[in-house]
Amino acid sequence: MTEQEFLTLMRQIGLDTQDHDIEELHAAYLRLVSLFDRLDTKSPRAEAKALPVFDPRSVL
């Protein structure tokens, strides 16, 4: 995602771009996304099946 695309997304989310150091935030975003391979699981369907955990008793 380019910095311009990042800015567009930021506006779509409703964030004021003036409040942020866009270059720093964009670089952090790219770094974070580059690490997402580490979220791969051996059995994603089995792991994700347990999510989200909702206990109906918790709303009583």
């Binding site: 974070l32 979220l39 699981t41 994603p44 994700a48």
Partner: peptide, 15 residues
């Protein structure tokens, strides 16, 4: 955190 996709959040919970 605003830029993390729901898919990646769920993947993180699975991880």
């Amino acid at each position: 955190g605003a830029f993390i996709r729901a898919e990646d959040y769920v993947r993180a919970q699975a991880k």
